[in-house]
């Protein structure tokens, strides 16, 4: 019972802060197209960076509390999809934070990197919207996203063999290490 209450609390915090991070990042990217928006961009960048960093530790807490609040987690497609989309959200948000950390606030001054940051933010926002929608479907039986005609059916999921999941995990880890160790060296960009 406590885990359910905790889950509701943490989910509210996580989705709220993550949405703030993503919207601020998208707005920072859009501000490049407005003359004299440098100050606003600096504020949006800071808000986005701090909110994204705050979301990263909250996400695993939300997943753990959600797992504890269910009697049989991941035993149906809906809850299985929640794990998958939690992973996608973490990936997009972490990439956003890493990009901002490596290139500094000047990341928004380079058109290609700014676009990549915005794509990460849009991906994170879409994933967390789907996460919330699945949660609403599971608890309330309906979601505000039901009005969309193309909304996918979440009563189905892509389930792969357990061993293959482990292989995918190892491939993912190796890919991350390779991206950092073998990828091009990056430098902070001037503001």
């Amino acid at each position: 019972m406590f885990s359910q209450t905790l889950h509701h609390l943490v989910v509210g915090l996580t989705t709220g802060i993550a949405t703030l991070a993503c919207l601020c990042a998208i707005a920072a990217w859009v501000s490049n197209y407005f003359v004299g928006a440098k100050n606003a961009r600096a504020h949006l960048d800071t808000a986005s960076y701090i909110a994204a960093i705050a979301t990263l530790p909250l996400l695993p807490i939300a997943v753990l509390s959600g797992t504890m609040s269910m009697s049989d987690p991941a035993s149906d497609a809906m809850s299985y999809n929640k794990f998958l989309f939690a992973g996608l959200t973490t990936g997009f948000l972490a990439s956003m934070v890493i990009g901002r950390w490596r290139f500094g606030p000047g990341v928004w001054n380079d058109s290609r990197l700014a676009l990549l940051q915005a794509i990460s933010a849009i991906g994170a926002l879409a994933s967390i919207t789907v996460l919330g929608s699945i949660g609403a479907k599971m608890t309330l039986g309906e979601s505000t996203m039901d009005i969309l005609p193309f909304w996918p059916a979440f009563d189905d999921s892509i389930v792969v063999n357990g061993w293959f999941s482990l292989v995918l995990l190892i491939i993912g880890l190796v890919a991350v290490v390779a991206a950092f160790m073998l990828g091009p060296k990056v430098e902070r960009l001037p503001e």
Binding site: V63, P73, A74, S79, Y80, F83, L84, A86, G87, L88, T90, G91, F92, A94, S95, I98, G99, L116, S120, G123, V159, V160, N161, G162, S165, L166, L168, L169, I171, G172, L173, A175, V176, A178, A179, F180, G183
Partner: peptide, 18 residues
């Protein structure tokens, strides 16, 4: 399996975007 797939998805996206 769900946890492994979730983490794998996160790592692959991080690797790609980095």
């Amino acid at each position: 399996g769900a946890r492994a797939q979730g983490f794998a998805g996160a790592f692959i996206i991080i690797a790609l975007l980095v």
